[in-house]
Simulated assay, not measured.
Amino acid sequence: MARQQKAKAKMEQAKGKAKEATGRAVGNERMTAEGRAEQAKGDVRQAKEKGKDAASR
């Protein structure tokens, strides 16, 4: 389960980064902001999983 969540976090980060770059390229502030939000969501998920890993050791 943890591996699946880590993969999901990485995917959210990559998707957010792509969305942010696309938003900047076309001048769409909303898309840029959504991309940043998705990246942040992935960052939080990744930090949570790292915390679980550290606690289980």
Rank of each mutant, 00 (worst) to 15 (best):
K6G: 04
G23C: 04
K10G: 03
S56F: 05
E34Y: 01
A18L: 14
A55D: 11
G27C: 08
E38L: 14
T22C: 05
D43W: 01
Q46S: 08
K10N: 11
A55I: 05
K6D: 04
R45V: 06
G16S: 03
Q13Y: 02
E34P: 01
K10A: 14
R45H: 08
A40P: 05
M31A: 14
A54Q: 07
Q46H: 12
A2D: 11
A25T: 11
R3M: 12
K10S: 10
A14E: 15
E12A: 12
V26Y: 09
V26F: 07
T32N: 07
E49L: 00
Q39V: 09
G27T: 04
K6H: 13
K6E: 13
Q5M: 13
A7K: 11
E20Y: 06
G42K: 00
A2M: 13
K8R: 15
K41R: 15
G27P: 01
K6M: 15
N28Y: 01
A54L: 09
E49I: 02
A47L: 07
K41W: 03
E12C: 04
R30D: 14
V44N: 12
R3W: 12
T32S: 08
E49P: 00
K15Y: 10
A40D: 13
K48Y: 05
M31Y: 04
Q5L: 15
A37R: 08
A47W: 04
K6T: 05
R3D: 14
K19S: 01
A37W: 03
G23E: 00
M31G: 02
E34M: 06
T22D: 13
E49F: 01
A14M: 14
A7H: 10
K17N: 07
R57H: 09
K41E: 10
A21K: 07
E38S: 08
G51L: 04
D43C: 04
Q4M: 11
A40G: 12
Q39E: 15
A7Q: 15
A21F: 03
R45T: 07
R57T: 06
R57C: 05
G16V: 02
G23R: 01
M1Y: 08
Q39M: 15
R24D: 11
M1V: 13
K52Q: 14
G23N: 02
R30G: 08
V26M: 10
Q4V: 13
E29V: 10
K19M: 14
K17P: 00
M31T: 10
D53H: 10
R30K: 13
A9H: 00
A54M: 12
K50Q: 11
R3V: 12
S56C: 06
T32K: 06
A2H: 12
G16N: 02
K10V: 10
N28S: 09
